[in-house]
């Protein structure tokens, strides 16, 4: 089966300082495949480049070498509808629950703007909103509130709802629960598991907790000294 998203021999070098003199190789030749319905775990120490791998696969950053393939095609070569297709199919969920929603937009507006982006006719908005809130297990009374007025776990679920509206096929989860309490982490992770069963999503789950991996991932990779090591 063709992987939905594949990073092929991806390397990243960071240059810093005046004249870009200091070069630091973060990782080299990493190959990772994401399929629908499967969770690939990515572990590693802090600073080992997990987030960079995630961002490269989500297309938020360019690799220094290698390429990222979407359904077998280099994402740099995608245009027009195909590119939109890629954008839609690959979505990212970020680490900090407080930061992943604009504090000055009400929850409702945050959701509606995505519906606007998708050109959903306005009369369907209400239905779609309720639908997606139900999917992530939130009540509609949250809609009038602002991100500062809901808890970390709820923030993370709203961020998830926004992403799910696009009907992605793979999601890149960058430590989605490491800033949350264990009880909230259990909520969010079991929701993710459920969504995977229901919608056949593929995940790249970045986390540093081995226990989380044991529960969530079908396949785990460890990023060590810039190389990817498989660990069951």
């Amino acid at each position: 089966m063709l992987a939905v998203l594949k990073a092929e021999n991806v390397s990243k070098v960071r240059e810093s300082g005046i004249f870009r003199k200091t070069r630091r190789e973060i990782f080299q030749n990493i190959t990772l495949e994401l399929e629908e319905g499967k969770t690939v775990g990515l572990m590693g120490d802090s600073g080992s480049g997990k987030t960079t791998v995630a961002r490269i696969m989500a297309g938020l950053e360019k690799p220094s070498a290698g390429r990222v393939l979407f359904q077998g095609r280099d994402i740099d070569s995608l245009h027009g509808k195909e590119f939109w297709d890629y954008k839609r199919s690959v979505q990212m969920v970020f680490q900090d629950p407080e930061g992943s929603l604009n504090p000055r937009k009400s929850i409702e507006r945050s959701i509606n703007e995505v519906l606007g982006l998708l050109r959903v006719p306005k009369r369907e908005w209400q239905e779609r909103t309720l639908d997606i809130l139900h999917t992530v297990g939130l009540s509609e009374e949250l809609l009038c509130r602002y991100p500062g007025q809901v808890s970390g776990g709820q923030n993370q679920r709203i961020a998830l709802a926004r992403v799910l509206l696009l009907e992605p096929r793979v999601m890149i989860l960058d430590e989605p629960t490491s800033a949350l309490d264990v009880s909230v982490q259990a909520h969010v992770l079991s929701l993710l598991r459920e969504l995977q069963k229901k919608l056949g999503l593929g995940y790249l789950l970045v986390s540093h907790q081995p226990e989380v991996m044991r529960n969530m991932a079908h396949e785990v990779f460890v990023l060590k000294n810039g190389c990817l090591v498989e660990s069951g």
């Binding site: 264990v182 009880s183 982490q185 259990a186 992770l189 079991s190 598991r193 907790q209 226990e211 989380v212 044991r214 529960n215």
Partner: peptide
């Protein structure tokens, strides 16, 4: 809720 106890 702990991952090692099944994330319930």
């Amino acid at each position: 809720c702990l991952p090692e106890r099944g994330l319930h």
